[in-house]
């Protein structure tokens, strides 16, 4: 019986590939946009403007403190009520990008705050502008702190992308739901779905671990 089921599942591999493709594309776009936005927010959050900093802090707390499923529903079902029409893909990208940006913002803020004030004072004293101080002095040093948790966060966000199946996007998780209606073996089907995610995430997990080791070693070593 299991052979029949496996054959039946194998028959839907084009669908599975499409689902995997959707998961990868969705994750990739959101992670790139979310990283850019997250760095921007993190830099603004640590900037001198209290109003901007406070507003970003509040938004980040709000997003971190509510379930992602709820955020997706709000974007996909509530925004159209306000006259903003979104297809499921765009809604998914917006929700994931926003989530990624908020988590990455916190990571970037922690990195920036880890740079000793003496570094900023030295840059300030030699007349570097605000952006030059950030670009030349603060960010390169913050990256040592930022990189390992950043890659770890990517793994979490790829897995969170499975929630977009709730608004009808045919990603890997939704393919699982579709297949399981034809092949009544949830254990097998979702084992394979999980395997799909794992194949995408595992290289990143390895990368995060290597980065952590490299950064950890760099602290004790002579060369930075």
């Amino acid at each position: 019986m299991i052979w029949q089921q496996l054959q039946s599942i194998a028959g839907s591999y084009p669908l599975a590939l499409r689902g995997l493709g959707m998961t990868v594309v969705l994750s990739l776009i959101s992670l790139v946009l979310g990283t850019l936005l997250g760095f921007g927010l993190g830099i603004l959050r640590t900037g001198g403007n209290r109003l901007i900093s406070g507003a970003i802090g509040a938004w980040v707390d709000l997003i971190r403190g509510t379930p992602f499923l709820v955020q997706i529903f709000l974007i996909f079902f509530i925004l159209p009520e306000l006259g903003i029409e979104l297809d499921a893909f765009t809604a998914g990208i917006i929700a994931l990008t926003n989530l990624a940006a908020c988590f990455i913002c916190e990571i970037v803020v922690a990195g920036i705050r880890s740079v000793p004030t003496g570094q900023v004072e030295a840059a300030l004293a030699s007349g570097l502008s605000r952006w030059q101080r950030m670009r030349q002095v603060v960010l390169p040093q913050a990256m040592r702190i930022v990189l390992p948790p950043l890659v770890g966060q990517y793994v979490l966000l790829i897995k969170d992308s499975s929630v977009v199946s709730a608004i009808g996007l045919t990603d890997l998780t939704r393919v699982g739901w579709l297949v399981v209606q034809r092949v009544p073996n949830g254990l097998l089907v979702f084992f394979l779905v999980g395997l799909g995610y794992f194949i995408v995430c595992y290289p990143l997990i390895m990368l995060a671990r290597r980065l952590e080791q490299r950064m950890g070693a760099a602290h004790g070593e002579v060369q930075l």
Partner: peptide, 20 residues
């Protein structure tokens, strides 16, 4: 102030060289 600072060198007790 940024322009004025370019005319003033400041040497710190803890050097504050850029480690990277």
């Amino acid at each position: 102030m940024t322009r004025l600072r370019t005319e003033i060198g400041f040497v710190f007790q803890s050097f504050n060289l850029y480690p990277h």
